[in-house]
Structure formats: C-alpha cells, structure tokens
Design a binder for these strands. Sequence first.
DNA 1: TTCATAATTCGACACTACAAGAATTATTGT
DNA 2: ACAATAATTCTTGTAGTGTCGAATTATGAA
Lengths: 111, 111
Amino acid sequence: MKSDDAIMALGALAQEDRLAAFRLLMMEGDQGLPSGAIAERLAVAPTRMSFHLATLEKAGLLNARREGRHIHYSVDYLRMRSLLGFLIEDCCGSNPDICCFPISEPIQETH
Amino acid sequence: MKSDDAIMALGALAQEDRLAAFRLLMMEGDQGLPSGAIAERLAVAPTRMSFHLATLEKAGLLNARREGRHIHYSVDYLRMRSLLGFLIEDCCGSNPDICCFPISEPIQETH
DNA sequence: TTCATAATTCGACACTACAAGAATTATTGT
DNA sequence: ACAATAATTCTTGTAGTGTCGAATTATGAA
C-alpha cells in the first residue's frame, strides 16, 4: 500500500455514514449487503448512501458485485489488512520486545 | 471509542503530511520527536507541521510534552489500539472460524 | 534584561467535500 | 414493449479544510 492509497481509504472512512456502513459490512463477511438495505438500516437517503458507497469503493475498501437488481457491497478484507499494516508498519522500530502492534504474525490470512 | 472520535482520528490521518508524521512517530515509540525535527525530516514548513501536529493531537492520536524549548510529540498507542479495535469490531460476526481480524487476543497490551 | 530559537496562532484565499432532490440507467416481471 | 424496482449520476448551494506568510508566545542563554 502506498501513502496515497492510505489517504484515500482513511478519508473515505472519516465520515459518519460511510464509517457506519463500513462497520456494518465488516460484520457481514464476503456476502455483503445491497445498497438499499444499508441505507434502510442506517436511516440514510438511498441517493446519499449510493454516493458514500461509491466513495468507499473508489478508495478500494469495498467490492461491488451485481446480483439481480441488487448490488452487493462487501469489505475488501485484504485491502483493509494492507491499510492496517501500512499504519502500524515498523511500530517501535520493529523491536518485538517493545512493539505494541506485532502485526507481522498474529493476524492470519483468512480472507 | 465512539464514532465521532474515530471520524476525527481517521480524518486527521487522511492527509499526506500528517500521515507521514504519524508513521514516523509510530517508529519512535514513547520518546517521540520535536515538531522541528519532524518538519525537517519530512521537508515541511514548520508552521504547517505545527498545524498538522495540533490536528493529530486534537484527534487524540498524539501526546505532546514540553522538554526544554522543544515539544516532543509521540503516538498515543492506547488510542491507536482503540481506533483499530473500533474499525474491526465484530468482524465477520465475530465468528472465530471465519473472522479475519481476531483482535481480541493477538494484539497484546504493551503500551 | 536582551537576544535567539522553537513553536504556535492568525487572517485571507483557494479548493474540496457534503447534502438534497430531480433526472437517468439497469434489471426483472407481466 | 411496458411498468416497477434498485441504484446511480447530475446540479446547486453551502460548509469545511489546507496553504502561506506575518505576527505572537514561550523557553533558554549571554
């Protein structure tokens, strides 16, 4: 992950409705949820939710796939992992005795 | 961590100079670095760096402590941990068999 | 006290992002 | 083909954010 990608992703998450949508999708796994369902559950106008989901997708945090007349949005977990890795990279000079985020090991590859 | 706090923190990180400063401080541990040193290493005007560091501090991501005529900024690791925890909370419905970010265990309390 | 250094605050300008509703595209069923 | 549903795109007004340089505050040394 490059700095510009991280900035896009962080900026995308730094908004009330988008953060709520992302966290909701985080719980839904790869199946995801359609735009309308997200808008309804968060009590946000469909047109705004659509805009926000597009922002998250452009930032690389979400994947969109059409299923009938619905479009399912789901978290790009690999991308999310990259983002977190980028943020805590070389924490505490990578000294395992001090380091607070030894991400290299503990977070396994599931997605 | 509440949603508003997370939005502040994410928004603070979503800027080139601030993200670079944060990542630099992430490697420095609790000792941190003075504003001037950060500005110099990142080739950013002191007045701008000061503004950006203040933004990160208001967002709760950095701590500032005076040391002589320098002000040392350092990462608030506990706060950072809260932020990450908030982002990946209840990932995959907290099902440990599927979940990609089982944060409950792997990230130990060092800071 | 006076000077030099470190850092912050202030004011003006430009730029970007958000919100709301109307209009448009895409898909399914009759 | 036509109507209904799902979602996106567009337009306008508004508010927030970043940048820059000048001025201000705070600390340490002569």
